[in-house]
Design a protein around this nucleic acid. Sequence first.
DNA 1: TCTGTTCTTTTACAAACGTAAAAGTTATTG
DNA 2: CAATAACTTTTACGTTTGTAAAAGAACAGA
Lengths: 130, 130
Amino acid sequence: METLSHSEEQVMTALWDCGRPAARREIAARLPADCRWADSTLLNFLLRLENKGFVRPEKQGNKNIYTPLVRRITYCGAVSAAHLQRLYGGDLRAMLGALADTGRVSFTDMERLARYLDSRAAESPEYDYD
Amino acid sequence: METLSHSEEQVMTALWDCGRPAARREIAARLPADCRWADSTLLNFLLRLENKGFVRPEKQGNKNIYTPLVRRITYCGAVSAAHLQRLYGGDLRAMLGALADTGRVSFTDMERLARYLDSRAAESPEYDYD
DNA sequence: TCTGTTCTTTTACAAACGTAAAAGTTATTG
DNA sequence: CAATAACTTTTACGTTTGTAAAAGAACAGA
C-alpha cells in the first residue's frame, strides 16, 4: 500500500472521522487544532491523496465530496505491522516491553490489554491465522 | 526527542546492532541488504545523526568511531508511543485489534503476548505508572 | 445580468530527504 | 619520499513534503 505523509494522514483521519463522504469544510472541521491551513493547503493534500488512491472526489455543484477508498483499519493495520517489523522485527512482546520500560504504558494498561486478549481468544477463534 | 528519517533510523539501528561504538565499515556491514549506499551517503546520514544528537564521532587515526548517544529502547519506546497516539489515540487494544483484524498478527501471537503480559504483571510490579 | 463570494485548480517555493560526486586529509607502501 | 589507497568533509542535486498565493470556475443575490 502507498504510504502517506504525516499531513496526508491527518487529512485522511479527519475524513474517516466524518463517518461518511464529506466535503472540504467538514473535513477541515475535524482536523486537529494545530492544522489551521489555508483552504488550498488542505485541497492540495486531498489531491495528493487522490493521486495515491486514497480518496475519490465527486463534484456536487461547485463543491467536491470526498469518499475514502481505503478503510481505516486496513490502513492502520498495515502501518502498525510495518512499524512492528521495522523496529522490533515483528516481535509484539518487544514492542510492549519498550512501551512499558520507557513508562509509556502503565501496568494497568497492560493488565487491561491482557484481559482483552484473553476475551478475544475465548470468543473469536476465527482469528487463527497460523 | 528529535525524529529520524527512515534512512537515519536504519543507520542508527545498524549501529545499535553493533553493540558498541563502531566505525563506518562495521556499521555498513550491519545494514540491511537494500542499503548499498556510496560511502559518502552513509557518512552523510551519520553527520545528520550527529546534528540531531544521536551519535558522537571520535577520531581514531583517520577513521571516525561513532558512539550512540540515545539508547535503542528509549528511541523505540518514544516512536511506538507516538505511533500509538497518532493512529489509535493511545488505545493499545485498538492497535492490537487492527493488527489482528487485518491478519497481521495471528491468534497464537496474541496468546503468547497475553501470557507474556501476565508473567510481566506477576513479577514486575515496578512498572505501575498509574 | 453584474458582481461579489465561495470553491477548486494551478503554480510556486522553501525545507527535508535520499543519494552521491568532488575535494580534502591521513595513512600506507614501494 | 613519492605515489596510491583509504577516509572524511563539502558541495550538489533531484524528489517529496509542507504550505500557500494566484488564477480560474461556479454560484447567489442585487
